[in-house]
Design a protein around this nucleic acid. Structure first.
Lengths: 243, 243
DNA sequence: ATAATAGTGTCTGTGAGACAGTATTCT
DNA sequence: AGAATACTGTCTCACAGACACTATTAT
């Protein structure tokens, strides 16, 4: 990965240019990265994408995907690019989460990161990315390993935000395929909110909200009554507030 | 202000150090600032603090206060510092808003800004800061002048966030002094939400929520029945998510 | 008495949540 | 018949919003 060697080059060039320079001492030019908490629902779990670090610091530890901003890229584009590199999926639901800038969050240099979170439908994941490659893997959000940097904080914050967003927006759609049963939708809510919901109240609420329409199709997956398939009326508009 | 000359120095040093350097071409080290939307309620209006720019770009235009991060400072500390410099007030309610990083938001260089918003009680403002100095002034949020950079977007986003926050948190307290009448509190809501509220419903809601306690005192300010003064039970805990 | 603001209660509709039995499909 | 999941309706309670009159103070 280019990004890891980049930081060393920057540091080298900084050492040179700060020779005999006093006026810049109180200020500094930090490095800026984007980091992305990628959620998916797969195998009955809410999962997060992690990458195992090959280099120091936090060598061999897991961390969320991220990288430096390129020239001419918006923050969001940088996040999209990294996401595409890691999952081969485009048009991912992406939202800015929070920016982290504690002076020592990266022991090498001052690195400020703009954290994003993303939701991906499990059915769009290619096998290679979904994969069990030794160094990129999906983890159940409830049993994450220790993460490098302040990435545990970032993931927890993302999950909190996801819980909030679920209550007053349509984001749950981003985790399901085009057509789905109401039971599948309920599972999404239950996994994110970490609690059981009442089936009748849930259906009442979803159906009365009018965000979902019935399709002609049904889904069979066992020796039991087939379930009606539904679709979302309109894909959620993503407000990004950035030009 | 140091900050404006800082950017020129950085650019000069960049020109030198990029001589014959190709590997860094696709990446760049952007500059990072914090910008703060400072709200107060004064004179029956929701107001925002603006500073008139002395230099290019956007010379003579108004902009929100902001500046570069110093070595060893967290983002929040940088925002606090700038806020203190501008208003002479400490312990200000401050919350991170959003980070803006469009490549051309500053015509001079790549500048990524982490925007914050702050709430200040009008009664804590010293005269000098509250002031009518030619270059620092409070503006009614409904009639802001054209702002430099993307600062209009930032202010609008901050106001939107403020509206949301008002609904499910105690932030309104941050805009009032220790003791206040329910009518004053209602005015805060009305100014932020830009709509009239029903006096009976408002009082019912506030009183039943239990966030407020009656004091022994009353407030007289005219030829009419004096108003009961209330106080907040506890100051809102500010979650900053940053170590 | 008048002006000016403080303060108070009821009704209605809506939505959230608790709660249990019937329907359909396949073996 | 049995297993497995889909599907459905009622009641209660709390909160939101509409709505108008009385209370207190100073001049």
């Amino acid at each position: 990965m280019v990004t890891d060697s980049f930081i060393d080059q920057i540091q080298a060039s900084k050492k040179e240019s700060s020779q005999g320079d006093t006026s810049l001492a109180t200020y500094e030019t930090p490095l800026v990265t984007v980091d992305i908490v990628v959620f998916t629902i797969d195998d009955g779990m809410l999962k997060v994408l992690l990458i195992r670090r090959k280099r120091q610091p936090f060598q061999h530890m897991w961390a969320i995907p991220g990288g430096f901003i390129r020239t001419g890229e918006t923050l969001e584009e940088a996040a999209e690019r990294r996401l595409h590199e890691e999952t081969s999926v485009k048009d991912i639901y992406l939202e800015q989460l929070y920016s982290f800038g504690s002076p020592n969050r990266d022991p090498r240099a001052r690195v400020i990161t703009v954290a994003y979170y993303a939701l991906i439908r499990a059915d769009l994941l290619h096998l290679e990315a979904k994969a069990n490659a030794e160094d990129v893997r999906w983890f159940d959000v409830t049993t994450l390993p220790e993460l490098g940097f302040d990435h545990s904080d970032i993931v927890n914050l993302a999950w909190d935000r996801l819980k909030e967003q679920l209550k007053d927006s349509n984001i749950s759609f981003q985790l399901l395929s085009e057509k789905f049963t109401l039971t599948e939708l309920q599972r999404v809510y239950e996994l994110i909110l970490e609690k059981k919901l009442d089936k009748r109240n849930f259906r009442k609420k979803i159906l009365s909200s009018g965000i979902v329409i019935e399709t002609e199709e049904t889904k069979m997956d066992g020796y039991h009554r087939p379930a009606q398939l539904y679709a979302f009326k309109e894909r959620q508009k993503v407000l990004m507030y950035e030009l």
